[in-house]
Nucleic acid binder design. Structure first.
Length: 809
RNA sequence: GGGCCCGUAGUUCAGCGGCUAGAACGUCUCCCUUACAAGGAGAAGGUCACCGGUUCGAAUCCGGUCGGGCCCACCA
């Protein structure tokens, strides 16, 4: 069989991708109830334009596993979703369409978001993923904002509410007084600002006298919301004041002086005032000491009525005025200019405030012990990733706040009674609902009988939905098979979101179903720039995977992604794609040689030559190890093992040795040719199959040329994973002599700077095998090394000498 | 500030108690050989970051130091 000289990945890869899709090679068999299922909780990428290198990296790694499991005969459930709900999408679309969400009707804004996502963003994304060769069943597809997902999120909300795991209460949220909107962490930015440390005077009664207590603050305008003063318990200077009260300057009311180790004795004067709320620590203090919450700022960034005469002033104005007044009353001792980083809203640069408002929470702080157990029950790959989960859980201080004052998200299925504020849930049968548009099923408040309701305007945080991906994706398929899918076999994801996505999914699954969502988790590392740094647009070191796939191939890209151990970060090196490309070429050329000699091959082994058994036995070890590696998510080991075996044992040595037998059956005998054909056929096939998960296109191309018909399979990717060949130690050790001799001869010729086909006039081999055994490999040695006269001497078993080879060229 | 990972050849990585510490790329030398010259073969190249400890034996296990990366938190 003649095989064309070159392989063109640019043409071949899309061709096979189309073929796989048209033939449903990766379809999940929804009726395959009897087959063992392997289910994957595919991460839904956030739609932010197009696939980036980190995606190419980690999605390739999970795909290796999916393809391996499929070749092991499992019915692989491998859905695909996109995460397009939440702030990230909102902001992207505001920019793309030049609109501002808060100035629009929510429904209208959501409509534009959905349209943009579906028509512009998603298709590009899915195309990129398919171009990478991802073997998802794209017919099992979800969006975190589609009807199914909204329904699942709202159902989850109702269920947890009924289980008394949800509550609504005042809580501080980050707020931009300029844009007058709640904002999220991702919209914040650090900004270096010039400010002053103001040393101000609190008065403490000490017997008859009043003592001064000096406190350094950058936020004097928050004084009216001051609720306590803290010092560190190890700080002897302030110990005597513990439990006493101090008078707040200008506002003349008393607050307690309390010990707390969060106060830093080194900072300022060592004592600090707690205002509700100046920053995160204020919130912790408020909660830990159960302090009153005072609100000094309103939503438009003006002082509230508790500020007395400063009421209605803007923050900057109030700060100035208050400082002036304190100066006048000698309550301001000194001012030191400082530079410090503050959180600002990235859109407008305004300093962020913490305001209290009603928020929904999932109550889970009481479950810390259980959470640790849940985490331990998962099989972590690699195992050390568990400690990230563990430390996160141990450090938890708040319940899970799930409400956001946002626009494009899943609405809460909730109305409130206008009169008594009682909660009215949507009817489960009517989900998904939008309370701003829909009406509750109940006509009257159960508590007070009132008939007027106020819809909840907030939407859920995106994690409240994405923590349901197992339920959402499973919800798409036949009811009959759902039971077999849950808990799922695998959650693949990167390590940066263990504390969010992974943790939240575990929590939801436990609260809803009382079991873990999956058995195994596989945690990928990050793709970095060539110098091992994080890639980011601002650094200008972003590498686009699309370009690299175009320049080399998807297989080469995946080859690179298989280059580091699971969980390890990997710097991107373009040279690694070159290596991948070379490997593809080598596979292609070796296959050309093989198929040239296999057209008349029939599977009837007969008597096997030693060298053929040597190769198959060695390969048997590789198959055994590689299978184990992939079962343990160690795809990089499989790659290294197969790559090395193929290049050196198989191509350099084995193929060179059998050429003579293949080309010259008249001289060497038909049986020795048959033996070579047999080993060649099965050896190459096993190599292809083991590389198929990593390089799905080139292996498919070669498989289809020769093997597909013979095995009666539509694709290498649904073909049976190779069985390990029998390992035959004795034959291996005899065969190894032949290989050692070949390598020795090659080295000798290279040192003498002569061509490899230069004849060797005389060769003298000494080895620890019998003359009879040597006879079984003598002809192969002669032909592969071009030796004219070969002599052998047996080394006794107990001799110190090992293998020796002398030659004369 | 807390956590996790990593320091092995010029570069990117394997090896994770026991052969002479490996591969790829790069470098140098050679080779048109009936799969492959947009190839191939061979060679050179290492105080396994540093300091201690455990052990018959440490790149590998333990403790510390110093670097690098990432995540989280903080910024009165």
């Amino acid at each position: 069989m003649e095989v064309s000289k070159n392989y063109e990945p640019k043409e071949a890869e899309p061709r096979w991708q189309k073929y796989w899709e048209e033939n449903g090679i990766f379809s999940f068999d929804q009726n395959g109830i009897k087959k063992e299922v392997y289910s994957i909780d595919t991460p839904p990428p956030t739609i932010s334009g197009k696939m980036h290198l980190g995606h190419a990296f980690s999605y390739s790694q999970q795909d290796f596993i999916a393809r391996f499991q499929r070749m092991n005969g499992k019915n692989v459930f491998y859905p695909f979703g996109t995460d397009n709900n939440g702030v990230a999408t909102e902001r992207l679309i505001e920019k793309m369409k030049n609109i501002v969400a808060r100035n629009m009707d929510r429904e209208e804004f959501s409509r534009i978001c959905l349209e943009t996502v579906n028509n512009e963003l998603k298709p590009k994304y899915v195309k990129d993923m398919k171009r990478l060769g991802l073997s998802c069943d794209f017919s099992i597809f979800y969006d975190t904002i589609d009807e199914n997902s909204r329904k699942a999120s709202q159902k989850s909300f109702i269920d947890l509410y009924k289980k008394e795991r949800e509550y609504r209460k005042d809580a501080p949220t980050m707020w931009c007084p300029n844009c007058q909107t709640g904002i999220s962490q991702v919209e914040c930015q650090d900004k270096e600002m010039d400010s002053f440390f103001n040393d101000i005077v609190f008065k403490v009664k000490e017997g008859k006298n009043e003592e001064d207590l000096i406190i350094a603050t950058t936020r004097p305008e928050l004084l009216p919301a001051c609720v306590a003063i803290f010092f560190n318990p190890v700080d002897k200077r302030y110990k005597k004041y513990s439990g006493m009260k101090a008078k707040v300057p200008l506002f003349d009311y008393y607050v307690p002086i309390l010990p707390d180790e969060r106060a830093d004795p080194e900072k300022g004067t060592g004592i600090v005032m707690c205002c509700t709320f100046g920053d995160q620590t204020d919130m912790e203090w408020q909660k830990a000491h159960n302090l009153e919450i005072k609100t000094a700022l309103s939503k438009d960034g003006r002082m509230t009525e508790i500020a007395g005469k400063y009421k209605g002033m803007k923050i900057a104005e109030a700060r100035k005025k208050i400082l002036e007044d304190m100066k006048e009353k000698k309550l301001l001792v000194s001012q030191k200019p400082i530079k410090h980083a503050v959180n600002v809203h990235e859109r407008c640069g305004t300093e962020i405030e913490f305001l209290k408002s009603k928020q929904w929470f999932i109550k889970y702080l009481d479950l810390k012990e259980e959470m640790l157990e849940w985490g331990k029950e998962l099989n972590w790959h690699p195992p050390h990733m568990y400690s990230r989960y563990e430390h996160w859980v141990k450090g938890l201080q708040w319940d899970w706040m799930i409400s956001r004052q946002r626009f494009f998200g899943v609405p809460f299925p909730v109305w409130y009674c206008k009169k008594c504020d009682d909660v009215l849930l949507a009817d489960e049968g009517s989900l998904p609902v939008d309370p701003m548009k829909d009406k509750p099923k109940l006509k009257k408040c159960q508590k007070c009988g009132c008939t007027e309701f106020v819809p909840e305007k907030d939407v859920m945080d995106t994690w409240a939905t994405s923590s349901l991906t197992p339920q959402i994706s499973i919800g798409i398929v036949n009811e009959k098979i759902r039971k077999k899918l849950y808990p799922m076999s695998l959650r693949p994801q990167a390590h940066d979101i263990i504390t969010f996505w992974l943790f939240n999914t575990v929590v939801k699954s436990r609260l809803h179903n009382d079991m873990n969502p999956w058995k195994d988790v596989m945690i990928s590392g990050h793709a970095q720039d060539p110098h091992g740094r994080k890639m980011s647009k601002s650094k200008g070191n972003v590498i686009e995977p699309q370009e690299m796939i175009e320049k080399y191939s998807a297989d080469a890209m995946r080859f690179w992604a298989a280059g580091s151990k699971l969980g390890e970060d990997l710097p991107f090196q373009e040279k690694d794609l070159v290596t991948g490309q070379k490997f593809i070429t080598k596979l292609w050329n070796a296959s050309r040689l093989a198929f040239m000699h296999l057209s008349d091959y029939k599977d009837e082994p007969g008597k096997m030559e030693i060298v053929d058994s040597w190769m198959l036995s060695r390969l048997g070890r590789i198959v055994r190890d590689s299978t184990k590696s992939l079962e343990n998510y160690e795809y990089s080991k499989t790659k290294i093992d197969v790559e090395w075996f193929f290049w050196h044992d198989f191509c350099d040595n084995y193929l060179e040795i059998i050429k003579d037998r293949l080309y010259n059956p008249d001289k060497r005998g038909k049986d020795t040719r048959k033996s070579a054909q047999h080993a060649l056929y099965h050896g190459l096939l096993a190599i292809l199959k083991m590389m198929a998960p990593i390089m799905p296109h080139i292996t498919e191309e070669i498989y289809q040329m020769h093997y597909a018909k013979k095995e009666g399979m539509k694709s290498i990717h649904v073909a049976q994973w190779p069985e390990a060949f029998k390992i035959e130690e004795e034959k291996e050790s005899i065969g190894k002599i032949a290989v050692d001799v070949l390598e020795h001869a090659r080295k000798a010729k290279s040192e003498r700077k002569v061509s490899l086909k230069t004849p060797i006039k005389h060769m003298f081999v000494k080895a620890k095998i019998t003359a009879e055994e040597f006879g079984m490999i003598a002809e192969d040695i002669k032909s592969s090394t071009c030796t004219e006269d070969l002599e052998f001497e047996e080394i006794p078993e107990n001799s110190k000498m090992g293998f020796e080879c002398e030659l004369e060229i």
